[in-house]
Design a protein around this nucleic acid. Structure first.
Lengths: 223, 223
DNA sequence: GTGCTGCCTTAAGGCCTTATTAATACCACC
DNA sequence: GGTGGTATTAATAAGGCCTTAAGGCAGCAC
């Protein structure tokens, strides 16, 4: 899980990330509201932990702006402010959970997972047009025909499908298909090409589309 | 909103439903775990409020069974048990929120709404007249036809749309489309021209308007 | 071990899209 | 008629992406 921690108390931020890293999550940090907002705009996170009292911009404002921009990343507000009005304001501006400091780490983690779980597809099968992915079996069909996929090809297709019809950046796809190592861009291109040969080539129209400079997406293009 | 209240304390259940009805929600009731489970299986609810200590079947068991059956209705656990272990167990069996009694009604309502909001498809699109932007997909249509945009063109249109119908200054648009570098004014004009060719030219009337000396705006001009 | 197969990786050339530059035309206003 | 701001166009430069081919490395059967 990919977490953004927006928190001005460096000690607390470090303590959280220590714990979260142990649980297998990855953490990024922002130490004031403005940088938090910018980071959230630029990168994609699974969850955001947001403090309320922050230098430069309050947590409420950060959340409000993100939501206005159509960013619906789950946000957990973590703060020492425990008044009802603060909590109500929080939910009004679009946060998803409100936790009062101090909070035991395991509980925080449980709530983060709950938020993330809701955001995940809850089926083990997903169709985009005539392409169907069977996640548990690591296989896919199009128009009923089995598609022959290499492990890497599957990984790429998997993420594209989960996000469909959204655009997924090349870096994200690379991280997903090669979690433990960096990968040469040329290599990625080749794998992508193989994938297209399997998924798109044999059929009438492509489902994998390139958005130059931004990434790739998987969907049926009408017209 | 359609709520199932599973709660053995009839007074509390009544108090909740009174409040929730006032907020425009509809409530159904179950007074023990077993009937709660059956109701949840038979009808579709937007959210379930689930007590932990219930006759016949504990709340955890109800949740567990529902999840196993592929029912992912958001569940808010409302209980007097405030121990960490209870909370952790709750999240482990698949609840989405855990609230300790007594809880002020407005807060409960806010959390219910937050859960429900997450469950709704998040459109993330914006229309100005017949022009529609799909932010996550980085694409736009006008009168249903796909508009072909370059990355820079998209950036410019994106900001114009977010601010529409307000006027956006040229400098702001430049900063948004070229975040890392300054840009020649001539270049900006060219990009803008390309954008207009794609967005306005093929259609009856333009949506991008110049305000000499101030900036640009995106809107339908009446008259 | 040898040779096979399938997959990953590396490298290189070419192509197409997009960005930039520069030169020219427009238009309102003074 | 000159000026400042904007529009248009074409030509060039740059960058990103596609494609192909060939080498390497594992696992497996013999």
């Amino acid at each position: 899980m990919n977490i953004l921690i927006v928190e001005d108390d460096a000690d607390l931020a470090a303590a959280m990330s220590d714990y979260l890293l142990l649980q297998g999550a990855e953490c990024d940090f922002a130490y004031h509201g403005e940088s938090g907002l910018i980071l959230a705009q630029e990168c994609r996170f699974d969850v955001i932990i947001l403090d309320l009292m922050l230098p430069k911009m309050r947590g409420f404002e950060v959340c409000k702006q993100l939501r206005q921009q159509g960013n619906f990343t789950p946000i957990l507000m973590l703060t020492a402010c425990d008044t009802n009005t603060d909590q109500l304001t929080g939910f009004q501006v679009g946060i998803d959970d409100y936790v009062v400091k101090p909070c035991p780490m395991p509980l925080l983690w449980a709530r983060l997972q709950a938020l993330h779980r809701r955001d995940q597809p809850q089926t083990d099968q997903l169709s985009i047009d005539t392409l169907t992915l069977y996640f548990k079996e690591l296989r896919a069909t199009r128009e009923g025909d089995e598609i022959k996929l290499t492990p890497t090809g599957w990984k790429i297709l998997e993420l594209l499908a989960q996000r469909s019809p959204e655009v997924v950046s090349r870096t994200e796809l690379e991280d997903h298909a090669w979690p433990d190592s960096d990968v040469d861009a040329g290599n990625f291109n080749v794998q992508l090409h193989q994938l297209r040969k399997a998924v798109d080539k044999p059929f009438a129209y492509p489902l994998i589309h390139t958005l130059v400079g931004t990434g790739l997406c998987l969907r049926k293009k009408d017209g």
